[in-house]
Write a protein that binds this DNA or RNA. Sequence first.
RNA 1: GGUGGGAUAGUCAAGUGGCCAACGACGGCAGACUGUAAAUCUGCUCCCUAUGGGUUCAGAGGUUCGACUCCUCUUCCCACCA
Length: 399
Amino acid sequence: MLQEALREINRGSAEIIDNERIEKLLKAYFEEGKTYTVKAGFDPTAPDLHLGHTVLLQKLATFQKYGGRVQFLIGDFTASIGDPTGKNITRKILSKEDIKKNISSYTTQAFKILDESKTDIVYNNDWLAPLGSIGMLELASNLTVARMLERDDFSKRYAAQTPIALSEFMYPLLQGYDSVHLKSDIELGGTDQKFNLLMGRQLQKAYDVKKQQAVLMMPILEGLDGIQKMSKSLNNYIGVTDEPNDMFGKVLSISDELMWRFYELLSTKSLEEIAKIKSAVEDGSLHPKKVKEDLAIEITCRFHNEELANNAKVEFDKIHAKSQIPTEIDEFSCDSEIWIAQALVDCNIEPSTSQARRDIKQGAVKIDQEKISDIQLQLSAGEYILQVGKRKFAKLKVN
RNA sequence: GGUGGGAUAGUCAAGUGGCCAACGACGGCAGACUGUAAAUCUGCUCCCUAUGGGUUCAGAGGUUCGACUCCUCUUCCCACCA
């Protein structure tokens, strides 16, 4: 039982620091029913969770299964100083209401995975704000500049001559102090967080908390391209609030190679099961497309439901395998005869008439499933299904 | 505070008076192909009813028939020195 739990906790993890402590905590749970705390921090600036975030959430849920109480930390204080990523972007300070709104959408998304009854939502503004400037300076005395510059992303940015704000140096300290205040037993984070996570251990020691948190790091999930990390700004993400059809399609679009990574980090199938599937694909008895479809359905199911997931599959086949039009299309109407390029822009499937012209020339535009080539075409009264490429559709009614 | 270097399209990055709507790379879009929105190959990639017109190279002025390119000031970034 204990071994099984430990194996499940280890699954997919990139690195664990102080594994013995985790074993001890679990043993105490299995033998005496003792619970412990698992901390993970979230930034309230990005309200849309994607699958990259859920890797961590799923790991937290695993701990909840085995006696862990999750400290779901909202970094509302740290967000207000956060890390300004390069360039001259002045960071906008989030208003209280914005943060609140973000958080509530955040948590409703997170509780699709986490057990709400075993989760404490905490805000670091509650203890960081009262810290004051003296407390802040005291905190800062725990770290030298040299050590800070050792940190990979700082040294890289320094070398690349991108600016680093002084306040960014405070970020790991504050995050570490959160662990001091919360007396966390374990902290979870991505591998990119290593420095900050270790800071928690160091500060817990410095502030004499009597324990040092164990650290479990999850790998960063690759995005749809399979190379860069999944992130919203790179637009290679699958959002947990994505429409079922999109979600299904996006999963199906990943490479066969990446699919196994997704299985390991996102599927709830056991490792044995996955190994079995993998060997079946290798010996040719199972088609990779089928395996990917199953994954797409599992994931779509998790964030929507079975019916919607199955519909998404049917819909996908309809559009791509049989190249038919989707069941639901956005409808638009206009009052008089309209030029085709303008119509495409008005229906939001082309960004400009210039782009529309180019696409028409390339044979990418279809009306009622028929390719068109006349740039000057006028649409007279009637109903049309407009299509650009394989994925952009609109229905237009001309009166 | 001083000295020097820099700011070019979504990103990186060429371009040192007309050949510049601006090389190239990445990204993005499309076409062909495919089990796929993958991979690969090909084309496109500022806007405008367009063999033409308009607006761009941090910002404001100036020199010039003509400026991304030269001059002045401003803003921001980087390095070295203090």
